[in-house]
Design a binder for these strands. Sequence first.
DNA 1: CCGCATCCAACAGGATACTG
DNA 2: CAGTATCCTGTTGGATGCGG
Lengths: 142, 142
Amino acid sequence: MDLTPNTYAADCPTRQILDRIADKWTVLILQLLEREPRRFNALRREIQGLSQKVLSQTLKTLERDGFVTRTAFPTVPVTVEYALTPLGRSLAITLSPLSRWAEAHMQAVESARAAFDVRSGSVVGAATPLTGMPSGGARALV
Amino acid sequence: MDLTPNTYAADCPTRQILDRIADKWTVLILQLLEREPRRFNALRREIQGLSQKVLSQTLKTLERDGFVTRTAFPTVPVTVEYALTPLGRSLAITLSPLSRWAEAHMQAVESARAAFDVRSGSVVGAATPLTGMPSGGARALV
DNA sequence: CCGCATCCAACAGGATACTG
DNA sequence: CAGTATCCTGTTGGATGCGG
């Protein structure tokens, strides 16, 4: 039996788990829930661009994976609260550097993209000019 | 002007970046390149389940985002080497805890899934028996 | 309020074949 | 070896309407 999990094997469970946790919505949701438990529509409102359907699906898998708990209070219109489990909290802590990295290096990435697009000659609104010039080839940049 | 980036706004650049870096293949590729630069087919072989098309696409965006450099040596059959930029190295370090978390908590997640599936009564190979029983409802767990 | 079910458009991604 | 181009299918995900 193979006791050492290998993320690079397609069939290893760790691969499947990595696929789930390396997800945009997972990162954002867990981040919010780490601060404090929330209701369904609270999450929906706080995360722009997240549709109700996808939120619903995501929460369900997060619950199944043991990251969040779903508690329904039998109030008049039902009230549902989502909260992190200890396992989920552990994951949230692991994930939070991702958001911070994105914020910290946003500018650097945008610059890199702009530079690359110039090198590739892909000017957005205009046809690629055969005139100017290619080359510029293999200068080590970085 | 808004100086504070907000990952929860749909149009914020950080959101787009988060979407890219929170990606299964990105995590795996950067991890490998952090140890040492690699050739195209080396990456392809080392990462099971990663098709040539997707690897190609992914590497291109990673290059555009300024995470990796692509160096082509004019040998007989051309040789191409991918390596991390300082920015990419910074990201790789941020990403590596993800893989390790997956490995460390693999068992816990699988247990959670099994438990959830039992609660939900979704036995894989069999039709859901109307006989047995529903309920099991709202017991607070965890 | 909290969802699920349905329909449908868009895109991701595998297989294959062909270039420098 | 290191890709690009084409085709074609499966899944993702938005929009909408209904039910507990």
